[in-house]
Simulated assay, not measured.
Amino acid sequence: MKQAAAIVLALGAATAQAQSSVAIYGIVDAAIVGDRGGSAGNLTKVTSGAGSASRIGFRGSEELGGDMSAFFTLEAGTKIDTGEIDAAGTIFNRQALVGLKTAIGSIALGRQYTPYHTTLVNIVDPFNTGYAGSSKNLFPDSGTNIRTSNTISYASPRVNGVDGEAFYSAGEQSTIRAGRQFGAAIGYATGPLTVRLAYNSKNSDVAANGATPAVNRTLGRNTLLGANYNFGWIKVNLGYGVDKGDNAAPLGNPNNPYGGVKPTASTDGRDYLLGFSAPAGPGTVLGSVMHKDDRTGFNQDANAWGIGYLHPLSKRTSLYAAYGHIHNKNGAGYTVANNTESGTGNTGYNLGMRHTF
């Protein structure tokens, strides 16, 4: 009987293990980064996450039966150059979510990426919002445009090439609309073509608190249309964005990086990107040109371009080099960024190494 019981317990444990899984994953990325052209002068430093933000994460799932499963993700950002957490006072600042997946889609709750950001990363930008050629140089990909807390999201399955996603982030203030954010995306993919349209709406109001009066602002709205087409010998990327309202397009570096009159964040702008990636020897060449059309009275337009090369040493390890430059007009304050830093000048370069596990 004892032997039979032991066999039953062992089989039960094996079955449970087969129905659930937990994985540890991460990225270790460090680079020599140079900033040129800003009031801070020429800076050269070692930076963590110039290509892809360094991180360690845990993800898992459990089969619940009836085509339903539970899943979770906990992801912490790290600084390879110092060994610190990349956001003080946090642990899983990058992602922290739990959800259910069914045949009709997935629902998740927690801290998550916005559809605007995932469209920019996966469809529009050949640099995937990293390196010195990042779309962050001109597109408003920062703060809660990237990820939001207190979020409920839904992602549909792909049917005949079409899929969609939506999210709602609660501001959790005494006025329900204050601080809330919501958005959605719909996409189509078939063969070498991928197209996606994303929308983001952000309320930057602050509800009254005791004797402190309420702060009311216009809605910040971002609309992004992206597409790419893989010809085999080259992949072409296109992006067009419309940004309107308060805090729709905050400057990556708001600290007056060029001195003089402080630049003003656009509340009515258009963003354009044309990019490519192409095989070159064992690696890949990346490139893009961008334009910011500021339609406010400040008319602070900007043009930017970037070039990069990714050289794999193995499936998990690669070296990279990237260069970016921005031409600001009428006192605009756009800076050459990378995946984790907003930059301090109008020219920048990265020489780095990236390992995934």
Rank of each mutant, 00 (worst) to 15 (best):
G133D: 04
T114C: 08
I186C: 05
A184D: 07
T190C: 11
G143Y: 05
Q112Y: 07
R147W: 12
T144Q: 13
E165I: 03
L120S: 11
S106E: 12
V124C: 06
P140D: 00
T119Q: 00
N128H: 10
T118A: 15
A166H: 01
S153P: 04
T102D: 10
Y154K: 08
N122C: 02
V124G: 01
P140H: 00
T148H: 04
D125R: 00
G110Y: 14
H117K: 13
S142W: 04
L109F: 15
P126A: 13
V162I: 15
Y116V: 04
G171E: 06
S106L: 04
N145L: 10
Y154V: 06
L120M: 05
R158Q: 10
S153L: 05
N137P: 09
S135Y: 10
N150P: 01
S149T: 13
Y168H: 09
I104L: 12
S142Q: 13
T190Q: 14
L138K: 02
R180F: 00
P126F: 14
G183W: 05
R111V: 05
Y154L: 02
V159Y: 15
S174L: 03
E172G: 08
A103C: 07
A103P: 05
G133I: 07
P115T: 14
I152Q: 00
T148A: 13
Q173P: 02
Y168S: 08
G143D: 05
S142F: 06
T102M: 12
E165T: 11
N128K: 10
A178Q: 06
D125E: 03
G164W: 12
I123K: 03
Y113C: 10
T175C: 06
S142C: 09
N128C: 01
Y116I: 13
Q173M: 01
A178T: 06
S106P: 05
T144V: 11
D141P: 02
T129L: 07
T119E: 00
F167I: 05
Y188V: 00
A178L: 02
G179K: 03
I104C: 02
S106T: 07
V162Y: 11
F182T: 00
D163K: 04
S106V: 04
I176P: 01
T175A: 15
I176N: 12
L138Y: 06
A155Q: 09
N122S: 13
S156F: 06
G133Y: 11
T144L: 06
R177S: 14
F127D: 02
F182E: 06
Y154A: 06
A184P: 05
N160L: 15
A184L: 10
P157Q: 06
N122M: 09
A155F: 01
T144H: 07
R158S: 15
P140T: 04
D125K: 01
A132K: 05
G161N: 00
N145E: 09
F127R: 01
V124I: 14
